[in-house]
Amino acid sequence: MMKTHNLFVSCIESRVQDQGSLYARFHIGTFFRGQALTFGNSIRRALLSEMPGFLMTDVRIQGATHEFAVLPDVEETVLEILLNLKKTVFVPRIPKNQKFETFQGFGFLKNNGPGKVRAADIRLPETVQCVSPEVHIATLTSGAELSLRFNLQFRNFSQLEKREGTFKSKTVAQAKTEDGNVQDTTNELPTLEKNSLFFQQLQNKRNSKDQLFLDTVPMPVQKVNYVIKSLNAKNGSEYIILEIWTDGSLYPQESVEFALRNLTDLFFQFANISKKSN
């Protein structure tokens, strides 16, 4: 088997599309016959499914006790505002020593009408940046006041699988899992002290009432396409043209790196195991 020495990953084109979306085209090679498909398909699937996302988990809007509330003098209902917020994209600026997965962020917004509120109006800490400033959030009329606060969190793909199906308040489930005792108390009487778990639960539920949960699904990579081209018909070597569209939260280059690392990790783990079992 002949070994190719000329491996290359080169970015041929990159540009900013509308609404902060980023596009880049890479040429990746050289592959032996058939390997390009293995590589291309794996990386497409990895890019589409395994990218972690930094997303909004919950919002508190002043004056809205639930997601179907209506705010005075605001053109949109709370539900529409939430749907708009889901469209915003944030990028963390992670300090070098901090781990990617544990990073948490928040943001808030306070605007008085009249005027349109865009994602650019969101106040963010130094560590978070909004890359979709043009996203429309709400239209305020004179006298309107919109003030909201939200939390941002990292979600990688394994966490995504477990996410809740609806917008519903998760406090019940959370409270239960926080302390395993609750689940087994089916036939016990609740203890009656003020600070007992039962009251805590009620308290939690009350407090979290104005907390509106978003079930945002991050889609950092919007679209991936690859085309296999032959490089040298004689020895059957190939290369692929990889096109990536991201939502702006990460550069296509980053996403490729991440996907490759992820895939490598995956394969490497199995390589290790198989080595041991042998």
Partner: peptide
């Protein structure tokens, strides 16, 4: 716990799940 959403009048609180 299922009664937790009732207010002092015995009606469920608006906005609860």
């Amino acid at each position: 716990y299922k009664m937790g959403n009732l207010d002092s009048r015995g009606l469920v609180e608006i906005g609860s799940w």
